[in-house]
Design a protein around this nucleic acid. Structure first.
Lengths: 404, 404
DNA sequence: CATAATAGTTAATTAAATAAATTTATAAAG
DNA sequence: CTTTATAAATTTATTTAATTAACTATTATG
């Protein structure tokens, strides 16, 4: 009774074809009408009609003439990429990362927004609103071309209503982001978890290209993943899909912040790395880290271990190698549960990707069940620090390119 | 370039609506044309036209007149369930379980087929063919009403081509089941992994009802799962999705048949239970099991532990309780990765469900990350031993009820 | 028995794809 | 140069199948 049926109708037929054509131009353009007809198996008049509408709506433009293949030259079509701009914001623990992209995900502007210490919900909303106002009105880009705002937010998000249900690093509940921003700016606003926006960003404009089944793993303070199935983000029943930081890999492992023992995060998250480093250093091991923190071991964190490793510190390199092995176990579990085509490693810790990758690959090779499993592609993030903010833009692009 | 676009067309529109109506009658029937129009928001003439076709094709029949609600009595429509029969076969380690169902998944006939020891591919095919011939021609049911054959096969299956790529308990590779059976019987044949057919069976006719995101866990000799996402089986990139038997939950756990340490299967599979029982009994623990196997500890297997537990043996009950806790860790990992609405426990070991459930629930309660996660429904299989064979029938039903 | 309400059908209309024919533009052949 | 073949795109006519509106059939209710 509760199931939603999408019935066939003229409207649906039209909107499917419009969406197919628009996306085909986006992904494979520039293309001629004839090309589109050939690839989609739609007839030329159908393509021409829809293209006419898309041009009128200024979503698509005719560009150059292509080379003739023995007859009339084709008129090539392209997305009118710079006719529309999107704001994407990644709300992190200490700051917000704001970017502006066009329809091709190309970076047009960016800014960093400071978050006050122990912010209230209102302060978070205010920071967002001020940052957005400044970006739109600074004059770099025509204000009327902004069409939507996407937010990548750490913690638990109610995507339907655009509410941050729980933001652990602020200790805040129920921030009504979508409602407030839509009222203020009168454009589409979408809110999503940041591991998911990161994955979305990589999927559209990063290293995820073409993989329909894809997992993006955000390794930072915590470990979270965005799961894409059949080319769309998958949330699961209660938005818990991809909470792989709290997958148990070692029943007798160290205690996690969640109260359990042996969670992946408790072995491979940023704080876990720092803790293991400090512990071993206390036992007297020698390492460059000592110099970097002036022997104040409480100052050790993930970034410092990475810095030391970069400078060739054997102790740190081995530490990250071991972390990679732990991560590898988590990823192997992922492969044996979801079996994605590709896994993308992003987030803060992934800066140390070079040092982690070896351990990850080793473990997957040894623990993978079949050859195919072992061949799962593990790749680093391409968009790096901006993956999540760019992915937030994709929240709007998805909407733009889906139906209308 | 490689993406397949489904373009909107009149054919698609029609087939969508036909499928919606057919499925609505199946799931919610008996229904009147007017009911269907109301629920689907299709107009009465559209519904009438399609229903006319469905009646002509003998997929649907008009049954009784419903009660008037203040006007003309509705003519109720039902699936012509017994006009079509489907054969489903679950190919296990020692025998095949064959069932015949109608379009409602109601059992019409069943049989057990013996598998020779160390069978060849040809012998497997022969056994299948003989069993099917016998079933069709025995006279219980009109032979011309059989429309398809579904096979649930343990091991790794190439579903596209209907080939059993690897059947570990036979040691066989590349059994071309679909090809051989289609040639012999000239009807649709579909082959799928048995954990997946089990899940499919529960989803349509068992305890999975209405959950779009569902995992069925087959706990037996090994542990495998069928993953349903958005109401459809999910295979992953290389059919490894759901191979949760080889998810690592204890880095320092016992060795698994796959060569790694601490796989779920090595802690909670049938042989693992038997091994733990034998080991502790060797240390001198007292248990009813001793009597059941005449003190020949090498005869202990999962079934015997279950038998003892049923008879109130404290040792066995505790053993299964512990097994449940291990399973619970595996399922919690599943929840934190896929977050299904429901998890169905089936397979051989699930006969001992009552003894496992407590441990499973305990663990999920203690290890679940959020309230919602902890509330994931864990339910036992409803179809029991026949789940996989009935699910094999669903492979054909899916096809029947999808488009045409 | 009249009336209102529900079920279902028939006829007319409409949206949008498809098919066929035509126009436009270009390269290559003679 | 002109002709011819061919590709690109548009125009016109046709077809599919949903929708709208009008109508018939049936039944409960007052």
């Amino acid at each position: 009774m509760n199931k939603k049926y999408t019935r066939g109708s003229f409207k649906l037929m039209k909107s499917m074809n419009r969406s197919i054509i628009l996306n085909m131009i986006r992904e494979q353009g520039p293309l001629s009408r004839a090309d589109i007809a050939k690839y989609t198996r739609l007839t030329p008049p159908t393509v021409s009609n829809i293209v006419k509408e898309l041009i009128e709506a200024e979503f698509v433009i005719e560009t150059t003439q292509g080379a003739s293949k023995g007859g009339r030259k084709p008129t090539l079509l392209e997305i009118n990429a710079d006719h529309f701009y999107i704001i994407g914001i990644d709300v992190g623990r200490y700051k917000m990362n704001l970017v502006v992209t066009n329809l091709f995900g190309q970076l047009k502007d960016s800014a960093e927004l400071e978050i006050k210490e122990n912010p209230t919900s209102e302060e978070i909303i205010n920071t967002l609103q001020q940052g957005i106002h400044q970006t739109i009105e600074c004059g770099n880009l025509p204000p009327d071309k902004f069409i939507g705002i996407g937010i990548g937010m750490h913690g638990i998000v109610d995507t339907t209503n655009g509410i941050s249900l729980f933001a652990p690093s602020f200790g805040l509940h129920n921030i009504p982001i979508k409602e407030k921003l839509e009222k203020e700016f009168n454009m589409i606003v979408k809110v999503e978890n940041d591991a998911r926006t990161m994955t979305l960003g990589e999927s559209w404009f990063g290293n995820g290209n073409e993989a329909d089944n894809l997992v993006g793993v955000n390794v930072g303070h915590g470990i979270g993943a965005g799961v894409m199935i059949n080319g769309r983000l998958f949330h699961g029943e209660n938005s818990l899909a991809g909470e792989i930081g709290h997958v148990t890999i070692d029943l007798s492992g160290p205690k996690c912040t969640c109260g359990n023992y042996g969670c992946l995060q408790a072995l491979a998250g940023g704080p876990a790395i720092a803790e293991r480093a400090a512990k071993e250093l206390k036992l007297g091991k020698s390492s460059l880290i000592r110099e970097l923190v002036d022997d104040q071991l409480e100052r050790v964190d993930g970034a410092i271990v990475y810095e030391a490793a970069k400078q060739g510190d054997v102790f740190s390199i081995e530490l990250l190698h071991q972390t990679g092995r732990y991560l590898g176990v988590g990823l192997t579990n992922l492969i044996h549960t979801l079996n994605p085509k590709k896994i993308i490693i992003g987030g803060g810790v992934s800066k140390a990707g070079q040092f982690l990758m070896k351990g990850i690959e080793e473990t997957i090779m040894s623990r993978g069940l079949t050859d195919q499993g072992r061949e799962t592609l593990i790749v680093p993030s391409k968009l790096g620090e901006q993956a999540s903010a760019i992915g937030a833009c994709v929240l709007i692009l998805e909407e733009f390119f889906s139906q209308k």
